[in-house]
């Protein structure tokens, strides 16, 4: 196997080095400097060891181009600035790109970030409004509102993704309620494990969409493939197309009565005693409006996504 063993002196000479011919005329390049690369760079005064650059820094350079530059997929929501303030160098903003898919993803993620943005602010990270609100007595309510916002955005535009996240923002504000409300500038308590892990998960989601978006940038074929896969994933519960069709019909003014599974539940709550269609406490699947009938939903969040029409 070792046909050209030259482990000490570097790789064997390249074929173009042996050929001698170098160029078709004078070159615009400066002649090489002697020494190692680090010496050369340090001698030139341009060395900056270990410089960390966040992608936002280069925004100032954009006007050096004569043409518009697409927005980075992880930079499309302005919520991201607040997370920058945490000092992690992470960009949590998402958004999915452009076009019709972009609007739905962007809105649902944006609003769900809102929900955990305010909670993060709750322990004093950064100068974002969340930090301000988070340390006063309105903490719980604010978080709740934001979470509700996420729910609203999600429910309006994207049912599946936005809903559970909004719910999370609302329901999990409790742990921060016991901070000292009179000490807004005190040292932030150590972040709870749940939120850190949640943020990591969210960054995974953001990375996921960022990479998908880059792939889509590079190639429309990948976009088609990805959307097909995503639709298949969403349709695994047998919900997507039925609900979509019903929604479109509803927009067109056609009243489609969802097939309600209303009859007496296993606990014997009869229909007439439940006139508003609310599910009985022990019968969580008693109010399903799936067109395809009483198929069990993967999670409860799919229920009632489109309202009660």
């Amino acid at each position: 196997m070792d046909t050209n063993p030259q482990p000490s002196g570097g790789s064997p000479p390249k074929p173009w080095e042996q050929s001698g011919a170098s160029t078709s005329g004078p070159t615009p390049f400066k002649p090489p400097s002697p020494g190692t690369t680090s010496d050369v760079v340090e001698a030139s005064g341009t060395a900056r060891p270990g410089e960390i650059v966040t992608s936002t820094n280069s925004a100032a350079n954009r006007n050096t181009l004569g043409r518009p530059v697409p927005t980075r997929p992880w930079e499309q929501q302005t919520y991201g600035n607040s997370y920058g303030g945490i000092g992690s160098g992470m960009n949590y903003n998402s958004g999915f790109g452009s076009g019709m898919y972009g609007s739905s993803y962007g809105s649902s993620y944006g609003s769900s970030y809102g929900s955990y943005g305010s909670s993060y602010g709750g322990y004093g990270g950064g100068t974002y409004g969340g930090g301000l609100y988070g340390n006063n007595m309105y903490r719980g309510g604010y978080g709740g509102l934001y979470g509700g916002g996420g729910m609203y955005g999600g429910g309006m535009y994207n049912g599946g993704l936005g809903g559970p996240m909004g719910g999370l923002g609302m329901g999990s504000m409790g742990p921060y309620g016991d901070q000292d409300p009179n000490n807004p500038y005190g040292p932030p308590p150590s972040p709870p494990g749940f939120w850190i892990s949640f943020l990591r998960v969210m960054q995974g989601v953001v990375n996921f969409f960022g990479r998908v978006s880059i792939l889509i940038d590079q190639n429309t074929q990948a976009f088609h493939m990805f959307m097909t896969a995503l639709l298949q994933l969403f349709d695994r519960g047998g919900l997507l197309y039925g609900e979509l069709a019903r929604f479109v019909l509803r927009l067109l003014g056609v009243k489609t009565k969802p097939r309600k599974v209303q009859g007496p539940g296993p606990d014997g709550v009869p229909g007439p005693h439940n006139p508003r269609g609310l599910p009985a406490p022990h019968n969580p699947h008693g109010h399903q409006n799936f067109i395809e009938g009483p198929k069990a939903a993967p999670t409860g969040s799919w229920d009632n996504v489109w309202g009660d029409s």
């Binding site: 690369t37 341009t46 900056r48 060891p49 270990g50 410089e51 820094n57 280069s58 697409p70």
Partner: peptide
């Protein structure tokens, strides 16, 4: 970024591009 194997960090960073 420009690196050498004998340094623990990059030697310098070239930042001018406006996209990936």
């Amino acid at each position: 970024k420009l690196w050498t194997l004998d340094r623990p960090a990059s030697i310098r960073t070239f930042k001018e591009h406006a996209y990936c």
